[in-house]
Each structure stands twice: as C-alpha cells, then as structure tokens.
C-alpha cells in the first residue's frame, strides 16, 4: 500500500467534486483489502462513509436508501424486513456481522469480484485487473466463477448478495455527478465483461452513488432469498436466488427473479420471469423456467455443477413461494 492522503467528505457535493481525483471510501471492507493486495492503488481516499444516510419513504410508497447506510442498518430496518424481506435476508447472508456493520450500501454495489486470479497481482493474469493481459481463471481454480454473462475475456462472478436482491426488486440507483443527478435501473448499473471487463459499472467519471430507490412492490413482502454455499456461513455464494411471486386467480401475475454466484453481474432472470407470467404455478413450469434461464450457461470443469444447482435452487424457491402465496 502506497502512502496516501485521507480526507473526509463534508457533503455529497464534495464527494462529487473530488471524485475524479480521489477514490471514495465507504466501509473499506473490499477496497482496503484490495489495496493491501496491490490490486487497487489509490493516492487519495475520500471517506464518504459518514455522509448522512437513512431510509426515507418516497412519494409513491417506495423507499430511498442512502448510499452511506450500513449494510447492517439496512438489513435490520423494520420496513425492509416487513416489506422487502428478500433484501434483508440477502444482506444478512453476506459476509459477517462485523463486515455488515462497516460496509455501506453504495460500497456493496461497487465491490469487485473475488476471483482468485483477479486478486493475485504477483502471480496471475487477469483482464479485469490489467486489460489485455489474459484470463488465467479459465482452466484454473474456478469454482467460484460465473457461468452466465461470461466472455472470452472474463468469467469472474459478481460477489454481492445485496445486489442480487436489488436487481430482483427493480431498484434504481441514484447517482450524483458533475453533470447533475441521474437515475439508473440497477440492471443497467453493472456491466457485462464483454471485451472490456475492467469497465464494471456505468458510473461516469466523478459520479457518486447517493442512494438506491426501492419502488413499491406488491410481491416483495412475500419474497425470499436463498443462498447456497460451501461453508454454512461467512462464505460467498455458489448459487443464490432472490425471488418473489404474486398470484392472481391461480396464475402468476408477477414474478421477480435474480440469481447470484452464477453471473458476471447480479443476474436478472428475465427469461424465467417471462415464462412464468400468466401461467399456472406447476413443477413443470418452474422446471421450464429454470431450464430456460440456464440454457446458455457456459461452464468450466469446476463449475459444471452450477447450472444444475441453480436450476434446482430456483425451482425450490419458486415452489415454496407459490405454496405460500396459494
């Protein structure tokens, strides 16, 4: 870690104006680790973790979550627990209590992949870390890599649990930038690796995540998040499923599904959703939806099990949701 300057942003405006030159520091749970590994080498850290952050109700009945809110506070908020349980549980599925106390909502959205080749500055090639250098993960130690949204350049999985739930909930990311504020659907926020995996988000230079909006949702209150991992706790997902269903007259009126652990970005299962809507909830339907979503999965030897694991987990979560809704 090189000698660095540390300062604390007084307000969002300062974060925006300094944002081009400084790296923003939230909880630091990912950034400090990557700095120690030499993956990140900022000269100046601007601490935004103390910017005021809470959860406010929006005019249309949704919630606006401050970017600097801690993950722990988000998960514990009674409104999130009651109306968006999949989000609360997704956050609680991630990391440890200590890390959730430190990590911010904005920082969680900005966290980088846990691919071991990305972290290995001294010993491995990684296009995401050094564009054009190659991808050693392919054919290597790759159990935790993605099977959806991969490219020749990169197969790294997005590690966030929280973001998976936000994707399923159609959250909107609020950005503050030199050119003013803008809003972005969260599905447009994280970018597929394609030929330029180093470009991970749609953030423009100098832009800051000020918050995340949860739109009102009639299905979110009975939504679920299930995480499958090697260790029972304190481990990244092999597969996770965030899902919610709303039934009307025995048919699925609305479905929201996102997958974690399998995508290079938090994966919105749009194909599965499309098959579900308007149909009767049956095991066969859920199987078809799961198959459709995973149809184009590309696996490594170490991830050959993931499409099947994702299909099974998705079917099980949908089955439980449908039973609860019926």
């Amino acid at each position: 870690m090189t000698v660095l300057r540390y300062s604390r942003a007084a307000d969002l405006a300062e974060a925006v104006s300094a944002g081009q030159e400084a790296r923003l520091l939230g909880g630091g749970t990912n950034l400090i680790d990557l700095m120690r590994k030499g993956v990140e080498r900022p000269q100046h850290l601007l601490d935004v973790s103390r910017l005021p952050a809470g959860i406010d109700e929006t005019e249309d009945g949704g919630l606006l979550i401050g970017g600097a809110l801690s993950n722990a506070a988000l998960a514990a908020d009674p409104r999130i627990r009651a109306h968006y349980p999949m989000l609360s549980r997704a956050v609680l599925a991630g990391a440890s209590a200590q890390i959730r106390n430190m990590a911010t909502v904005a920082g969680n959205l900005m966290q980088r992949t846990r691919c071991p080749y990305f972290a290995d500055v001294a010993g491995a090639s990684c296009n995401r870390r050094v564009p054009g250098s190659g991808c050693d993960a392919q054919g290597g130690v790759s159990r935790y890599t993605a099977v959806l949204g991969t490219s020749k350049s990169c197969i790294a999985a997005h590690p966030s649990d929280m973001a998976v739930a936000l994707v399923a909930l159609d959250a909107v990311v609020c950005l503050e930038g030199p050119a003013g504020p803008r809003r972005l659907a969260i599905t447009d926020f994280h970018l597929l690796p394609g030929d330029s995996p180093e470009k991970e988000t749609a953030l423009a230079p100098g832009e800051v995540i000020s918050g995340v909006v949860l739109p009102p949702s009639s299905l979110a209150a009975r939504s679920a998040y299930r995480k499958v991992r090697d260790r029972a706790s304190y481990a990244f997902a092999l597969v996770s499923v965030a899902a919610g269903l709303r039934l009307e007259a025995g048919r699925i009126a609305e479905a929201r599904i996102a997958l974690g652990g399998v995508g290079t970005v938090p994966w919105r299962a749009a194909r599965a959703e499309a098959l579900l809507i308007g149909a009767e909830p049956t095991p066969e339907l859920f199987a078809r939806a799961a198959d459709a979503e995973l149809a184009e999965a590309e696996t490594q030897p170490a991830t050959a099990f993931k499409p099947e694991l994702a299909r099974r987990t998705l079917r099980a979560v949908l089955t439980t949701l449908a039973e609860d809704a019926a």
Binding site: L25, G28, D47, S49, A97, Q98, I99, N101
Partner: peptide, 15 residues
Amino acid sequence: GERVLSCLTLAAQAD
C-alpha cells in the same frame, strides 16, 4: 459499541 474488523479499518476512519 458496534463490532468491526480493525484490519479493514484505517485508523483515520476512527477519528
């Protein structure tokens, strides 16, 4: 009063 990891906290952040 809240538990955190001191290895991932810069001392300056505890100001």
